[in-house]
Design a protein around this nucleic acid. Structure first.
Length: 129
DNA sequence: ATGCTGACGTCGC
DNA sequence: CGCGACGCCAGCA
């Protein structure tokens, strides 16, 4: 995806392509957007996708975050859950997963894969920025 | 090349 | 309401 103008991205500085679009690869954009999530707050895959300009790309956001663990600077991928505030995959019915632990370390509570008070902790880059 | 999968979300029926 | 189809596209078989 390429933003038409630099200010459209609201992200950090990017170089320009020959045609004037902003050079960016989706994965990097996801990482940058995720780093904007405040400590102690959470957002959704789809919210990041919308922020990046493609509401339908939520699935790719998950794909990108899946590969974000060895990235520097660090990406707080644990602050991204699905639209309903649930932790992904086989984590259901387990309280002792790395992701749940990371969230609880930041003061949030996770019960059976569900972020407690998700609606209050939810942080939407579209409205909060 | 082709088809399937996946940290998802929306839309239509 | 619930449920399925579809969009997105990199990676893998």
């Amino acid at each position: 995806m390429a933003f038409r103008r630099e200010e459209d991205s609201l992200l950090t500085i990017k170089s320009l392509n020959m045609d004037g679009t902003v050079k960016s690869d989706f994965k990097t954009d996801v990482f940058e957007a995720t780093r904007l999530i405040p400590l102690g707050r959470v957002t959704a895959y789809g919210s990041i996708a919308r922020y990046l300009g493609d509401v339908r790309a939520s699935r790719r956001v998950g794909w990108a975050l899946n590969k974000s663990f060895n990235v520097d600077p660090k990406v707080p991928a644990h602050r991204v859950v699905n639209r309903l505030g649930m932790l992904p995959g086989a984590l259901h019915f387990s309280m002792d997963t790395p992701m749940a632990n990371a969230l609880e370390k930041e003061g949030m509570q996770v019960i059976d894969g569900q972020v407690v008070d998700f609606d209050k902790l939810f942080w939407d880059p579209m409205t909060e920025l």
